[in-house]
Amino acid sequence: MSTLSAAAEAATDATAVDATAVGHQDVCLLTDLTPERGAAALLTETVDGEPRRTQIALVRTVGDLVLAVQHRDPVTGANVMARGLVGTRLVDGEEVPTLASPLHKQVYDLRTGACLDAAGKEPLPGEGGLRTWPVAVVDGVVRVLLDESAS
Rank of each mutant, 00 (worst) to 15 (best):
M1P: 07
M1T: 10
T3V: 10
S5H: 08
A7L: 13
A10S: 14
A11R: 11
T12K: 12
T12E: 10
T12H: 06
D13C: 00
D13M: 12
D13W: 07
A16F: 06
V17E: 08
D18L: 04
T20H: 11
T20R: 14
A21W: 05
V22R: 15
H24F: 15
Q25E: 15
V27C: 10
C28H: 03
T31K: 14
D32L: 04
P35L: 09
R37F: 02
A39C: 11
A40Q: 13
A40H: 12
L42Y: 01
L43F: 04
T44V: 14
E45A: 09
T46Q: 13
T46N: 09
T46D: 08
V47S: 11
V47G: 05
D48Y: 11
G49E: 11
G49R: 00
E50Q: 13
P51V: 09
P51N: 06
R52L: 11
T54P: 00
I56G: 14
L58V: 10
L58N: 02
V59M: 11
V59W: 01
R60S: 10
R60Y: 01
T61M: 11
V62E: 12
G63Y: 06
D64M: 03
D64W: 05
D64L: 08
V66L: 11
A68Y: 02
A68C: 13
A68L: 03
V69T: 15
D73M: 04
D73P: 02
P74G: 03
P74L: 03
V75H: 14
V75T: 04
V75W: 14
T76G: 13
A78D: 14
A78R: 13
N79T: 00
V80I: 15
M81L: 15
A82C: 12
R83V: 00
G84A: 07
L85D: 08
T88V: 11
T88N: 07
R89V: 01
L90A: 07
L90G: 07
V91I: 03
V91Y: 01
D92R: 08
G93I: 00
E94R: 14
E94W: 00
E95G: 02
T98M: 02
A100Q: 12
S101Y: 03
P102A: 05
Q106T: 03
D109C: 06
D109Q: 05
R111T: 06
T112Q: 10
C115H: 10
L116K: 07
D117A: 12
A118W: 08
A118V: 04
A119C: 13
G120V: 12
K121F: 09
E122H: 09
P123R: 09
L124W: 04
P125M: 10
P125G: 10
G126I: 01
G126N: 12
G126D: 09
E127L: 00
G128E: 07
G129W: 01
L130C: 03
R131N: 05
W133F: 12
W133M: 06
W133R: 05
W133K: 07
V135H: 06
V135K: 09
V135F: 06
A136E: 15
G140C: 08
V142D: 00
R143I: 02
R143S: 11
R143C: 01
L145E: 14
L145I: 01
L145V: 04
L145P: 00
L145Q: 08
L145G: 06
L146P: 06
D147T: 13
D147P: 06
E148A: 14
S149V: 13
S151G: 05
